[in-house]
Design a protein around this nucleic acid. Structure first.
Length: 285
DNA sequence: TTCCAGGTGCATA
DNA sequence: TATGCACATGGA
């Protein structure tokens, strides 16, 4: 029977850390609950040690969309076994057990990370919210305020640069606009990206103005599920230097090489642990 | 007031 | 290949 609520069995799933770790920008914590938007669905989540309790705005025939987004079938323990046995990564693991990677929509991830350039996470959330309120469609929700899906590619492509700047995007506005229009004009092979290997997909994504390796890697990891991809941002760069290179100051090229060869097949997950650890626990800068 | 934020693109040497 | 800088906006 379709139901508005669902009890999902979990183990080692740290919902708080996962939803607040800078992968997705559409979640809000209200008391013990998380309210968020996944595609066209509003959902409220709450977790204890053994379950995530989900509540949707309308009765659901199946919950695969949520299971996929949360990656409930991902074997975290097996992935962690492949991590290097060194202090830094083990410390990051111990600091936030159960941190996971989500599997998000390609377009929304691309757009959000185009907006992420030199912005704090709270400000990215604000830009995404403004864009959604103004150019997304309203969706059914069971909370206190109206909720909007992230705007479609077409909706963004129809905007003017001025309208996007009015959503506080600043110099990111022309980049987001060009990305939407270039996708619709087939300037890049957008439809095939999910089928490509990571190298090919990255080459395709960085054809977009405002998308370099870091943003492309976030899309590959958070939307594409390319587990070995290791995005290096300022936090991760500082953390790697602090944790692994105490005596020398490696160039960003050397760091890139180190990251690609040190963390193994689930390097992307290792990156998320390092990022979260650096942001929450380490006094970097 | 000043500094800086999940970067990128471009100029310069 | 490496470094420096501009690019908007808002919070600390």
């Amino acid at each position: 029977m379709p139901s508005k609520t669902k009890k999902l069995l979990i183990s080692d799933y740290n919902l708080d850390a996962t939803l607040s770790s800078g992968q997705s920008f559409r979640w809000q914590k209200l008391g013990e609950d998380w309210e968020g938007i996944i595609g066209q669905q509003w959902v409220r989540l709450r977790s204890d040690h053994r379950y995530i309790i989900a509540e949707a705005a309308s009765p659901q025939h199946n919950w695969e969309w949520l299971k996929k987004y949360l990656q409930l079938d991902f074997n975290l323990n097996q992935a962690i076994q492949t991590f290097p046995d060194d202090k830094p990564i083990q410390n990051a693991l111990n600091a936030t057990p159960g941190l996971r990677l989500l599997r998000q929509d390609y377009w929304e991830t691309l757009a959000a990370f185009i907006l992420s350039a030199t912005k704090q996470i709270v400000q990215i959330q604000q830009m995404v919210r403004l864009l959604s309120e103004r150019y997304g469609t309203q969706i059914l929700a069971d909370g206190d305020s109206p909720v909007f899906a992230f705007p479609t590619i077409e909706a963004i492509a129809d905007c003017t640069e001025k309208e996007l700047r009015a959503c506080k995007l600043g110099f990111r506005a022309p980049n987001l606009l060009a990305a939407a229009r270039d996708i619709l004009n087939n300037k890049i092979n957008w439809q095939k990206i999910p089928l490509m290997d990571s190298t090919e997909a990255r080459e395709e994504l960085i054809k977009l103005r405002g998308v370099g390796q870091k943003i492309a890697d976030c899309i590959l990891l958070f939307a594409g599920g390319h587990q070995h991809v290791f995005p290096i941002d300022v936090w991760v760069e500082r953390a790697l230097q602090r944790l692994y290179f105490t005596k020398s100051k490696p160039s960003s090229r050397q760091l890139r090489h180190f990251a690609d060869n040190h963390f193994g097949p689930f390097a992307g997950l290792a990156q998320q642990y390092i990022f979260h650890h650096a942001r929450i626990h380490l006094k970097l800068k």
